[in-house]
């Protein structure tokens, strides 16, 4: 066996301290848990060809339209969707994208529930999906509060009692348009999008669960 070359010695010397590098460890962890062929696979199990798996991707598509129309509305300001025909059209597009988002999300949730999508170590993926459904109600709610009309005031005044009863009225003031609008256009969309990204990464990391009683599939 020949002695290590100078290049190999230099390489070893360079990698030893690097093993303590947070950056290197993060990169290695990402490469280990989420390689690119898992993140963007070109082959999937045959059962993924079922239509029930479409509900997940069309939910994301609806979310994309919610965000695009919402960015336009927030850029043009909180009177535009009442004052102009184009604004009213974008308001409609935003509204119906949200309705589609919730319809598709509920269908995806039902599909995964009856397929027991939490099996085989995927409980966290399922639970984050349920959390996304719950959290998504908040931007929908603050959206209704941001309409600046009597509908918004009616909802806000009735919700105020519930918020006070729940002890949340002091820091979640539904009568405060600025606070509700800020939450609606900034924090809540970021929160929902972040959770969706985590959900997607978990699906891609673990792969799609086998159907019950499929090849090698089990009920537990």
């Amino acid at each position: 066996m020949s002695a290590p070359s100078s290049v190999e010695q230099a390489s070893a010397a360079a990698t030893t301290p690097a093993s303590r590098s947070w950056t290197l460890r993060l990169r290695q962890s990402i490469e280990r848990h989420l390689p690119m062929d898992h993140l963007l696979p070109d082959r999937q199990p045959y059962y993924v060809g079922s239509w029930v798996y479409v509900f997940g991707v069309i939910t994301i598509a609806a979310l994309a339209w919610v965000i695009v129309s919402g960015v336009v509305l927030s850029f043009m300001g909180p009177q535009w969707w009442h004052d102009s025909r184009v604004g009213r059209f974008f308001n409609s597009l935003h509204f119906w994208s949200v309705q589609l988002f919730f319809i598709f999300m509920v269908l995806h949730l039902w599909g995964q529930y009856f397929m027991a999508g939490w099996r085989h170590g995927r409980a966290a993926t399922w639970m984050i999906g349920v959390v996304i459904f719950g959290v998504s109600v908040l931007p929908a709610f603050t959206g209704y509060l941001s309409q600046q009309n009597f509908d918004a005031q009616f909802i806000a005044l009735n919700a105020k009692d519930a918020m006070n009863g729940a002890g949340a009225g002091a820091f979640f003031d539904v009568l405060n348009f600025g606070q509700m609008y800020g939450l609606h256009v900034m924090l809540l969309p970021i929160g929902v999008t972040f959770l969706v990204v985590v959900h997607l990464v978990m699906v891609r990391t673990r792969g799609v669960v086998k159907p019950i009683d499929a090849e090698g599939g089990t009920r537990s």
Partner: peptide, 9 residues
């Protein structure tokens, strides 16, 4: 053991 098919994500 599961049959894999081409898929364009």
């Amino acid at each position: 053991g599961v049959r894999m098919v081409p898929y364009d994500l």
